[in-house]
Simulated scan of single mutants.
Amino acid sequence: MLIMIRFAAALLARIAALALVVSTLFALPAAAQAPAPVSGLLEDLALRQELDPLKTVIVARDGRILAERGYRGNRVTDPTNIKSASKSIISALVGIAIDKGLLAGPDQKIAPILKADLPASPDPRINDITIGHLLSMQAGLGRLSGPNYGRWVASRNWVRTALAQPFDDDPGGDMLYSTASTHLLSAILTKVSGKSTLALAREWLAPLDGFRIGAWDRDPQGIYLGGNQMAMSPRSLLAFGELYRNGGRTASGQQLLSAEWIVASWQHRTNSRFSGDEYGYGWFERQIAGEEVHFAWGYGGQMLYIIPSLDLTVVMTSAESGPSARNGYRDALHLVLGEIITTVKAGPETDG
């Protein structure tokens, strides 16, 4: 009997020791077992019917990715058409061209640069249009976006067609959102540099780790379409956003774009007549969840958000097949950003 008692006691002791080892190896603190806050939020987005077009989301803070997720088979490394979010990239290239002395500045008049493509008998107001007017969508020329976009890209010379539009306002007047304005900037960059806009982007932004432009449409003269039809991955768009969040510097500290240009780009210059958002040089601005947000916005819901007060950069990409403003989808994405901001502000992150 004594032998059996000793054997049982020894067995219980070994079981207890084994349990301790197992708990040490596999049991994690409660905070680590629970889903990380931002990761959990991104996982929940897949269940929301109003977000069916959503393809990817990336959330980064101070240069570190907190969470990223692809939906319905999409990946953050897949190229996607960022649509008009590319207007912010054109703005960056203009800023670099100014830094390099290829352009004099936002107040430089465009007519002398594009004189070969001016109408035979132009409205004299065309001589008043500046680089800054094109950047802020205040050129005054009739819009070639929306219902007019198709006939514009079907024309034989997109630059001449844009410059031949009748004036709907004086230069410097109300915002007239038009992809033709940023295409004129692409033509100007090509003229003053002697290189294609794609070559400039690849050269000037080459030190930016992770940045890459893939396919990009061109006009009949070979000029890359300023402000539309540009393929980038969400990760690449994040890298571009990080350049702005970081004051124009790369992660290694190399200054690619002047901090002064970023300030100028984010300065309120006009307002969108469609959304009411403030607009600068290729960037929208609004308050979301109590924070100032600067964002690039492309058709269908291609979004790049920068929240400087929180060192936060957020990318959202969506199916390009439908609008995002008229159907409320863009507003739904703004609400998601508000949830992300609230989650980040709530406490320390446990995301990997």
Rank of each mutant, 00 (worst) to 15 (best):
Q302R: 04
L189Y: 03
E242N: 14
A19M: 13
I3A: 14
G226E: 07
T197N: 08
N74Y: 13
K87H: 11
M1D: 14
R269T: 06
P220S: 09
G352C: 11
I129A: 05
S324V: 08
A60L: 12
G210W: 06
F211N: 06
G132T: 03
N246E: 04
Y224D: 13
S84C: 10
T24W: 10
A187R: 14
G210R: 09
P166L: 07
L51A: 01
G63Y: 11
G172T: 08
D117T: 15
G290I: 00
G241Q: 06
Y224E: 14
V57R: 01
G301Q: 01
R160H: 14
S181L: 03
A325V: 15
T197W: 02
T179Y: 05
L189Q: 01
A116C: 01
L198M: 12
G248M: 07
Q138F: 03
A32T: 11
N157C: 09
A10R: 12
I131R: 03
S88K: 00
L237H: 09
E285S: 11
R286Q: 13
S324K: 01
D209N: 11
A199H: 02
L135Q: 02
V38A: 03
V263Q: 15
L304I: 04
S186K: 01
S136T: 05
F274R: 15
N157R: 11
E278Y: 06
A251F: 07
V59D: 04
R69N: 06
A180N: 08
G227K: 00
T317K: 02
Q229W: 10
P29T: 15
A46Q: 13
A231W: 05
G226S: 11
